[in-house]
Design a binder for these strands. Structure first.
Lengths: 232, 232
DNA sequence: TAGTGGTCTAGACCACTAA
DNA sequence: TAGTGGTCTAGACCACTAA
């Protein structure tokens, strides 16, 4: 017996062959069918293992072209995007949410662009703070489209965070997500209780449903925040 | 006919039912077998669609417990980790690499910890710069374990970047990856040709093979760098 | 302990694309 | 155009775990 019980075993075996340099970068693997015959399992089991390796960015598969080890592996990592409340509570801290401002306003140029709109649209502009054990954790600057989500005007944002309300009532089918490092401006520094110019991690997220914009939000994490990713 | 040709069609249909709020957050879906019967396809096709939704963090599946819509969707995003040279060339710029320093040195406390070592280990300490069209793009501060990778001493790091050599010659099976925003210190600012205190995005990555440390690297991107992620 | 989802198998047909 | 991988199907058995 070769001890293969599972597609995971097949994947582990192929990974081992890669680590042992039996396959050079850029080189082809045998056909799935041949590997299956060699290991004495079904082709679909090998296929399952190879697809997993392809998802991780380790091999490249092409119909007729076969499977090859990626010459320069550009591996993929997974980010788990948390709900801030659950993230904070998960670390054992008390979560609080504070509404700083709430105002109807047409989208400024930058937000109009982020939401891929041809022109400015009526929005609800919300600024809020998420706190962990009373300390500012995340400053949120959010624009919500009143064309797509007019009901947001009836929500009491002092008790429910806009984020959680949207997540539960407004599913999206398209999302753009980006991170960058920025020096805190006066407004942000004041909100987070830090010095102006302090380096902070900014997250920008915009979401759509059926092509209609839901919200564009820019969050600024308090200094020291680390974003961790998981690599296959 | 219901127009189902593919597991992707099944996934699209289930997604649509979620968007249409036919299933409330936290609520159960019918059993795979029942959905399959309803759609007139095999159970394995529904399984394939549901697994994809589970991978994206949209539904939760449990044996005997069935499939439910996640109450508070913590969705997953994918980061494609590039080779810096390919990233820069992909943007249409000329890539250059400059070795700033190269020195045998025992790992300092911080690196020892990052590499999960019980005590300091002999390392090769390398500082290098990746340039795009002659402009500093990424400053790299790397420690390579000489216990695991003694061959690195024979590599000419002025012509090959340590990153590319390692990627091609030293596969890893474990990787830790994190990002944070930091104010550039004098050394970093000088290397990147920016002002001290400027906010920069720092990436920390450490890799292992069979539990032995390969390398721990801290890269600092030039200001303006955006990290983009893909959401299902 | 009973009822889910997880996986495997063998065979079939198809879509894509290297040659 | 011929040879890969992609997908589907029906049936089987199993692992896990809610009840």
């Amino acid at each position: 017996m070769n001890g293969i019980r599972d597609w995971r075993d097949v994947r582990a075996l192929i990974r081992q062959r890669i680590l042992d340099r039996e396959i050079a970068p850029g080189e082809q693997f045998p056909r799935d069918a041949d590997i299956a015959a060699e290991l004495g399992c079904a082709r679909s089991t090998v296929h399952r293992a190879m697809r997993s390796l392809a998802d991780d960015g380790i091999v490249e598969r092409r119909r007729r072209g076969g499977t090859r080890l990626r010459p320069l592996p550009s591996r993929n990592a997974t980010l788990h995007i948390p709900i801030h409340r659950l993230d904070i509570e998960g670390r054992g801290w008390r979560y609080e949410h504070a509404l700083l401002s709430r105002r109807q306003q047409r989208s400024p140029r930058e937000v109009t662009q982020r939401l891929r709109l041809p022109r400015a649209e009526p929005c609800l502009h919300v600024r809020a703070l998420h706190l962990a054990d009373g300390r500012p954790w995340l400053y949120e600057n959010r624009w919500i489209s009143l064309v797509t989500v007019p009901e947001i005007l009836d929500v009491d944002l002092t008790t429910t965070s806009a984020n959680e309300w949207l997540v539960q009532h407004r599913p999206y089918d398209d999302c753009v997500l980006a991170f960058e490092a920025v020096n805190a401006d006066t407004e942000t520094a004041e909100a987070l209780g830090i010095d102006t110019g302090c380096a902070v991690l900014v997250t920008e997220r915009s979401t759509w449903i059926d092509g209609s914009p839901i919200t564009s939000v820019r969050t600024v994490a308090a200094p020291g925040y680390r974003l961790e990713a998981e690599v296959s």
